[in-house]
């Protein structure tokens, strides 16, 4: 008796979760559905399926891709994200190792400065950083990667440093006695041990850089567009929004993230939890 009543309750909860999940994901499906409708049939009736009269096939996609040069934006987003994340993982792991292994007043101060920088909102340095980037001619995609390294250093150094502290120093000492210089011992011994944090750091930074809007807007926005800039341009650049093109481009903007998520789902969830717990 007791048993069957709990399983009934269980079923009810599962049903509730199912309904909740479907409604939770429905906004994405509604956008997908509307991306196949003519642009004048979207704003007023977004919850209606396309009919013979309103269905336009891939017209919105063709129009949208042409308008915002979607594939250029996609390439730019991909270039900046991949480069920034590689650079951040490589350089901040080295820095974190150096800061923890070499104990001086300077490294201690640097550690605290990195950690406290995490709390500073972007608006605080927004204007001055843009000026500094202009003066130093960093206002191009490669310069932007360099700026991402600088602005992302706080969190990444902090996460790596927390892990380096837990690595027994004897391993490195043994390798160095065997004749390895610090560069060799870092890449042959330390970096492989750091792999789990490196994945966490990489995932947190991919999520940040890929979706970032303000930094690329201010640094390279007048010459290049990443996906978020292109989407915003679709709205800002024309008097009235072409809702059809907007829906199609939203779908294309979401698609790469969903694919990335479904492939690396396990790492992403674990990485986010690890990053949050240590942060």
């Amino acid at each position: 008796m007791q048993r069957s009543s709990t399983t009934n309750k269980d079923r009810l909860v599962t049903l509730f979760l199912l309904v909740l999940t479907v409604s939770f994901l429905s906004p994405i499906f509604i956008v997908l559905m509307n991306s196949f409708k003519g642009k004048f049939f979207i704003s007023d009736t977004p919850f209606v399926f396309p009919t013979d009269k309103t269905y336009v096939g891939l017209d919105n996609y063709v129009a949208g891709i042409a308008k915002i040069k979607f594939f250029n934006a996609f390439g730019m987003s991909l270039f900046i994200t991949v480069c920034s994340v590689l650079v951040i993982v490589l350089f901040t792991s080295m820095t974190a190792w150096y800061i923890i292994r070499v104990k001086t007043k300077f490294t201690k101060t640097m550690y605290y400065v990195f950690v406290s920088s995490m709390i500073v909102p972007f608006q605080m340095v927004m204007f001055t950083m843009t000026k500094v980037a202009n003066v130093l001619h960093l206002d191009n995609p490669v310069g932007l990667v360099f700026i991402y390294l600088g602005f992302g250093a706080g969190l990444s150094v902090f996460l790596f440093a927390g892990f380096v502290k837990s690595i027994p120093i004897e391993i490195e000492e043994a390798v160095m006695i065997d004749g390895c210089n610090p560069i060799q011992s870092f890449f042959k011994v330390v970096f492989p041990i750091l792999k789990p944090v490196a994945i966490t750091v990489a995932i947190l930074n991919v999520m940040w850089v890929w979706n970032d809007y303000l930094l690329p807007l201010l640094i390279i926005g007048s010459d290049y567009k990443t996906i978020p800039l292109a989407i915003q341009y679709l709205k800002g650049g024309y008097g009235s929004i072409d809702m059809g093109a907007m829906m199609a481009m939203l779908v294309l903007a979401i698609l790469p993230i969903v694919i990335f998520y479904l492939i690396c789902q396990k790492y992403i969830i674990e990485g986010v939890v690890a990053g949050a717990v240590k942060g």
Binding site: M94, T95, W97, Y98, M110, V125, L149, G150
Partner: peptide
């Protein structure tokens, strides 16, 4: 090991701050 990150951090964050 440390200089590249520190230079980037100084330019992108410390000086603007």
């Amino acid at each position: 090991f440390a200089l590249p990150t520190i230079v980037a951090f100084t330019i992108a964050f410390l000086i603007p701050f």
